[in-house]
Design a protein around this nucleic acid. Structure first.
Ligand SMILES: [Mn+2]
Ligand SMILES: [Mn+2]
Ligand SMILES: [Mn+2]
Ligand SMILES: [Mn+2]
Lengths: 221, 221
DNA sequence: CCTTTTTTTTAGATTAGCCTAAATTTTATT
DNA sequence: AATAAAATTTAGGCTAATCTAAAAAAAAGG
């Protein structure tokens, strides 16, 4: 197992996330994601290519190689296990965990992470509802569906919020919606695709399509 | 609170340990401690001086300033809390914790460390028996005394092993002496200062002065 | 005290990672 | 297809952290 610098790891992880769905990742997209400059991205892409972690031809974008994806999954495993630890054991809120995990994920000891995994009881999802890769890099498909397309009258559990903007977070706090909240969608208005929601002991209320699209849930019960 | 690089932190912590007792720390001593070159030490001393973390005049050695000591105690706090966590929660042996803590100590979040401290129950000593600074940088004096000078027939608890060489560790493992072991010194031979020891249900045995000098204990019961 | 040895500092390079500005290539628009 | 715009790469430079080799200062020894 080779070791990588914190910088290399941050690039690898960002590419992994950006290439979901897309056929290839662009220089500008990666620069924006990492708050860096396109020229810096090109420098790093050349380096990661020589290390065979990604496929890259000038001007053609890039994708992780199988080796690169394996490395990425290791970083994601560390990140999400630490997030779980912070939320579960140290009582951090799920909005706070990401920033701290962004540093902890770079502490490389395999034994540390495998022991941490065991200590936490081999959790399968982090506090944002994202799946945690196991020590072989395998993870459960997240089985998450947007509130905007969920079946009516079925109990669902909030797993993930895709848009982390302050505006949506404020709305969610106000509506008392957080990760783990159980609810049912009672009606979807054809006019504007807004959805009417029931959270157990409280009265019905409605949220916009824009909000619903960013709330991901799994079927529960 | 200023932030420091991993390298700066490693230098600061090493100086803190080396200056115990000594009036000033030398360039060569620090280079040896950090497995680096004297020229690199001089470079870093200049930088840390401009940051007012230490007192340094060319050729005269250096000492941490009060600010520098405060920074050092913060790093030591993080290091020892992680060591305690690794030993207590993740079942690492006390020989293994140091290396991993050497990386974890550089994750800076104050909230992380204060929460970890609380989660661990505000431990006062790490797995090597060294005291853990509290959030104000204060720590219990370690109250540790070498086995070579301990009173006879008093129960003592092994707290710290000063020499971490493979040779001594092997000897300790063979004699079943580890951190936390309770024992009594029954006799000290004037001829060679070797000491005769009793560990609870086992027969008496003897260890050399050299070994005894490196085993630090506190009085128990 | 004068010489030798040891310690420490300076000089000069190297590497990783980042930047700005300019050049180049690709893509979009007449 | 020609031109304009956008994306990307290259060129050149900067800082932090390291190193080796040479110079300088301090300490040790006769
Ligand atoms: Mn995260
Ligand atoms: Mn990170
Ligand atoms: Mn340690
Ligand atoms: Mn360290």
């Amino acid at each position: 197992m080779l070791k990588f610098s914190t910088s290399e790891e941050n690039y690898i992880k960002a590419i992994y996330h950006l290439q979901e769905g897309e056929s290839t990742v662009t220089t500008n997209a990666l620069a924006q994601e990492l708050h860096t400059r396109p020229a810096s991205v090109t420098d790093m892409m050349k380096k990661l290519k020589t290390k065979k972690l990604l496929h890259y031809q000038p001007y053609q974008g890039f994708r992780l190689s199988p080796e690169g994806s394996k490395v990425a999954l290791g970083i994601i495993r560390r990140h999400r296990l630490w997030e779980f630890f912070l939320a579960e054991k140290l009582e951090f809120s799920w909005e706070e965990v990401h920033e701290v995990a962004e540093d902890l994920e770079h502490v490389g000891s395999k034994k540390l992470i495998d022991r941490l995994d065991a200590f936490l009881g081999f959790p399968r999802f982090d506090p944002h509802g994202d799946p945690i890769p196991d020590s072989n890099g395998r993870m459960k498909p997240s089985q998450q569906i947007s509130l905007s397309e969920v079946a009516l009258n079925r109990t669902v559990i909030v797993r993930h919020v895709a848009d982390q903007s302050a505006g949506l977070l404020e709305l969610l706090r106000h509506k008392k919606i957080s990760i783990g909240t159980r609810m049912e969608v009672k009606k979807r208005f054809a006019y504007d695709q807004s959805v009417e929601i029931r959270i157990k002991p409280h009265p019905l209320f409605t949220i916009s399509e824009q909000s619903a699209k960013n709330i991901f849930v799994s079927y529960g019960e």
